[in-house]
Computed example of a mutant assay.
Amino acid sequence: MMIMIVFAVMTLLDPAFAQRQPDPINPTRESVNEPALLEHSPSIKGRITILDSKAALVEQPQGREWRRFHEGWMPWIGAAVPGAMILLLAVFFLIKGRIRTQPNELSGRKIARYNAFERFTHWMTATCFVILALSGLNYIFGKRLLMPIIGPEAFSALSQWSKYAHNFLAWPFIVGVLLMGAVWIGDNVPNRVDWAWLKAGGGLFTNSHPNAGRFNAGQKLVFWFAIIGGLVMAASGMTLLFPFTVTGVNGMQITQALHAIVGVLFITVMLAHIYIGTVGEEGAFEGMASGEVDLAWAEANHNLWLREQQGKEGTVSRTLKSEPAE
């Protein structure tokens, strides 16, 4: 009341006083716009008194790019890349068919190829990988493909259990990758024989059998991809499993994108590996199933390794195809 009286008296004594008063405050005009703020910082942050410092982040424009990638590009990548591999394998199978070992080429004798520990490591890692791959694909395609079919309640329960499986089975998968690296790294060192194998196309198009050690060049490529890709998946997965312990919001978004892309590439490469090890080539699955392969099959596909094994046993290396089956 007193302020109003003083203001009225000053206006009567000095009419120019009212004209010298500042204009009413316009919050919209006086505020700093978003582009001006983002010129100085990649994000807009405020001050908080609670312990969670992430709550101070008001706006992070990179989140829009991540959402565009996650909801736009990632489903297309996740469908197109493995889909192209499946189509390629299907065409190859229709043209080439299954690579078979003729009955007259078999010797009837066996040689140990993988011991029990190697087979256990392989199947433990492979089982975990399949579940991790399916649960990861559910993260990308579940709400688009499964939820309209099974309903939101069933999809919610499935996704919850998929999350548990993904988080817990990641650990034996990491252990398996490390064990495979330790057990097989010595047999997967590249050499000149591998280059010759690659130039010959692995004999797939000529019905020949290029020289190969315990693992041929194709198997070595799969091995190194599994080891390097597995370590990348492990590092990015643990970053996501323990959020904000290593990086901030933007770093988490980049890590999630990396984890998804490498995961899709991993699935694509393993599709080719599974094809060759099952329907693609006769006799390939036998070694990892029972641990033994036919001597003639070993001579045809891994002749240098077979001769090395024969040398360790004190036998004379020789071509077994000409030997009669026992």
Score class of each variant (00 low, 15 high):
167 N>D: 14
136 G>A: 00
122 H>E: 07
107 S>T: 09
118 E>K: 04
119 R>P: 01
103 P>V: 11
162 S>T: 08
162 S>Y: 02
140 I>F: 00
115 N>Q: 12
101 T>Y: 05
169 L>T: 01
94 L>F: 15
149 I>A: 07
100 R>M: 06
169 L>H: 03
152 P>A: 15
149 I>V: 15
124 M>T: 10
115 N>V: 12
173 F>H: 03
107 S>R: 05
96 K>I: 07
123 W>C: 01
157 A>F: 12
148 P>L: 12
133 A>I: 06
158 L>I: 13
98 R>M: 10
162 S>K: 00
106 L>F: 02
170 A>H: 05
145 L>Y: 08
133 A>T: 13
136 G>T: 01
116 A>C: 04
100 R>N: 04
149 I>S: 09
129 F>C: 13
87 L>F: 12
145 L>P: 04
126 A>E: 04
156 S>P: 06
122 H>F: 15
160 Q>N: 12
131 I>G: 01
165 A>E: 01
90 A>E: 02
155 F>A: 09
126 A>S: 09
134 L>T: 05
97 G>C: 08
155 F>I: 13
128 C>A: 10
168 F>P: 00
99 I>Y: 06
89 L>D: 06
100 R>Y: 04
151 G>T: 13
153 E>F: 14
149 I>E: 06
147 M>S: 06
94 L>D: 13
94 L>K: 08
133 A>K: 00
133 A>S: 09
105 E>K: 13
101 T>M: 11
100 R>S: 08
166 H>Y: 03
138 N>T: 10
88 L>W: 13
142 G>W: 00
94 L>I: 14
147 M>D: 06
114 Y>C: 05
96 K>V: 09
149 I>P: 04
105 E>T: 11
93 F>S: 12
114 Y>I: 08
112 A>W: 08
153 E>P: 04
118 E>T: 14
155 F>C: 13
113 R>F: 12
101 T>N: 09
156 S>G: 15
155 F>H: 15
148 P>V: 09
154 A>Q: 14
140 I>W: 00
138 N>C: 07
115 N>Y: 12
111 I>E: 06
116 A>K: 08
152 P>T: 14
109 R>C: 10
93 F>L: 06
168 F>T: 09
98 R>T: 12
151 G>R: 03
113 R>G: 04
119 R>W: 00
125 T>D: 05
108 G>Q: 06
166 H>S: 02
97 G>S: 07
171 W>L: 15
103 P>R: 07
131 I>P: 00
